[in-house]
Amino acid sequence: MAKDLSWQVPGDAGNLLHIGAWRFDGDGSGPRVHLQAGVHADEIAGMLVLHQLLPRLQACQDQGLLRGSVTVVPQANPFGIGQFRQGKLLGRFHEATGQNFNRAFDHSLAMQRPASNLAQWQKSLVQLAADADLVLDLHTDDEALPYLYIHRSFWPEQGLALAAALQVDVVIVWDDGGDGSFEETIINHAAPQLAATLELRGQADVSDALARQDADALWNWLCISGVIDAVATIGEWQGEVVDMGCMETILAPRTGVLVFEKYLGDWVEEGERFARIIGRPGDPGSEVPLHAAQRGRMVTGHRERLVAQGSVVAKFTGTRLSDSYSGGVLDP
């Protein structure tokens, strides 16, 4: 049977919060894997994927087909999952401090005694994954194509098989972070053969069919990585690779009704209009057109159709360094 690694951390109100985690051990001849979802608690798709993967891993262990070990944390963030306000889950930022849940993991790890309950949770999550050879953090964007976010040191040698197994549309390669994300902290403080973030489309893309598709893809990747003793084949990957600095992030110049005229996966030319914002419905003069900064493909879009000034409207791939890129992470 899987070993139960679940633990508790103190919540903001002093109550104990539960994090479910399980490890499936094989004969020790294969890699050690850490899979987690829900560090941003409002990104649900990966939780369902890992929920579906768990019984398959248990059967694999029971049948003696497991060569490596697999640790699974299907819902990693007990703080964010409880932040329902007026019917909406506010799971990206810690309500008590305003901190992005996927930031400052490195600071938490450096503390001998974490200074806060949030830091204690972060440190325990990193420590659980620290001895893994292969680490995957499952996220989703607002509305998005499936894409892989990966450090240059792992591309393409270790990452290409993962991109092919998941058949992601885009691979975004990064060099410098500096924000202390979970992935970056694992890379800086452990010695993984691969650590990457998988963006499983958009936040509303949660269904049994998509979860089965992604669980099958992860299963195939585990097989070809030598974790599971089973034959699997993956197709040739034909997606797009883009340096993070070449990604174009378009922000809303004003608040208003957002109307897309191009959609996920569409290609745009430099200067081409792809959306407009209507600041004052009824006033034609309040419409503001939005144009592509360079030729590229639309990878993400804003999920809500009433957008606030300064919000990310869309992200596009590009072939040259973005004029707006100043280093650091993809998202503000």
Rank of each mutant, 00 (worst) to 15 (best):
H151Y: 06
V173A: 11
H189R: 15
G159Q: 12
C223W: 03
E183N: 15
H151Q: 07
A209R: 08
G202W: 01
A163L: 14
T185E: 10
W174G: 07
V231M: 07
S225M: 04
Q193I: 00
I186S: 08
G178Y: 14
I172F: 11
V170L: 10
P156Q: 06
L160C: 09
I224A: 05
A204G: 12
V231S: 11
V227G: 05
V173R: 13
L218I: 14
D175N: 15
V170A: 07
N220V: 02
L160K: 12
N188A: 15
D208K: 02
G226I: 09
G180I: 06
L160F: 03
T197A: 06
I187Y: 03
P156D: 11
G159T: 11
G180L: 09
R201Y: 07
W221N: 11
N220C: 12
V231H: 11
E183A: 10
A190T: 09
I186G: 10
Y149H: 13
G180W: 09
V171D: 12
D175M: 09
L222D: 04
D229M: 05
R212C: 13
Q203R: 03
G202D: 04
A196P: 00
I150V: 15
S181I: 05
A232F: 12
S181N: 04
P192A: 05
N188P: 03
D179W: 12
S153H: 13
I228M: 02
G177S: 15
A209C: 05
E157L: 14
G202L: 00
V227H: 01
G202E: 02
G180R: 11
G202S: 03
E157D: 14
Q193T: 07
D179A: 15
I186W: 06
L194V: 02
D176G: 07
Q167G: 13
S181Q: 06
V206K: 02
A165R: 08
A161M: 09
A215R: 01
D169P: 00
Q203I: 03
V227S: 05
W219Y: 06
D176T: 15
D208G: 07
W221C: 10
H151C: 01
E157V: 13
L198V: 03
L200Y: 07
L166P: 05
A161C: 10
L194M: 05
Q213F: 09
D208S: 03
S207I: 05
P192E: 04
D169M: 06
N188L: 12
L198H: 00
V168A: 13
L210I: 11
H151A: 07
